[in-house]
Write a protein that binds this DNA or RNA. Sequence first.
DNA 1: TTTTACGTTCAGTCGCGATTGAACGTTGAG
DNA 2: CTCAACGTTCAATCGCGACTGAACGTAAAA
Lengths: 156, 156
Amino acid sequence: MERHVVRFVDQMAELYEREGFAPIAGRVFARLLLSPEPMALGDLARDLRVSKASVSTETRRLEGQRVLERVTRPGDRRVFYRIANDLPVRIMDVRLERMRRFRALLGQGRKRLPPDARGLRARLRECERAYTVFLRSSQSALTVWQRAQQNGRRAK
Amino acid sequence: MERHVVRFVDQMAELYEREGFAPIAGRVFARLLLSPEPMALGDLARDLRVSKASVSTETRRLEGQRVLERVTRPGDRRVFYRIANDLPVRIMDVRLERMRRFRALLGQGRKRLPPDARGLRARLRECERAYTVFLRSSQSALTVWQRAQQNGRRAK
DNA sequence: TTTTACGTTCAGTCGCGATTGAACGTTGAG
DNA sequence: CTCAACGTTCAATCGCGACTGAACGTAAAA
């Protein structure tokens, strides 16, 4: 791997770790992001200097989030992975899901509140409303983006 | 603490942990969210059954993110904390900052790319554009929200 | 003064999840 | 058939960051 790839991979690992993911997930993601071709598990493990076990686990987790796509080649038993072509959408979906969970938790907390806690209830509800606003705005942006992508492809 | 508060605190701790923060940060945040009055460090430590050291560290970290506000009372040497009154704005700011970092990293990676990697460059740039769109949309929603808050307060 | 109740800092511990190595099943080549 | 390469799984390790307890400084009270 060239120097700039190593740098990129390292920084992405740190970023992923800070966001609560496994560092190796960030490494795999970064490596594939800078690969013009899909890569096999063995290639990833070799480049990243980690075990195939970790790569296998994390790739399938990322595949579950639809950040990666599994591809096969005729006459090749290996499993290749590549970055999903709608990557931005998938990443945003992960973020949106996190926001929904947080809002849901706020709602649960509010519902359990004793009847006399009016101030608290108002505060929580306001926070939920804020999340609703942001979620709606983000989802709207997501839709716009998806439409633009479709049109772009159609134009080609 | 009542049952429903304990539940809420536990769930928030887990959520915070998944997002890459310290569980105690989530506990402190959740406890204060359900407290009508500001709380002193000792009170928080007692309720959450953790050391004052942890509470001290995490409260000041959350204060740094402006999620919490430090308040004092005349004739009381203790330090109280409460949830920031513009909490939704602060939370969104944290999220936006994360997105900005990610986009910046993509930009760095793209700039270091060799001149002949046209496909990769296009892919990274597209991803950056997506982030720009989402960031703009979120920032816009944030502004709208802040204006609405100001108007709401003025109306009172 | 001494004592007590604070908040903060820091070296050390400890839990837990990331990571690994080995074992396994499978598939294709020789 | 055997052998090698591949992906997956799982028990075990290991690193690292959360968390703690003790020490410290400070300020008010006694």
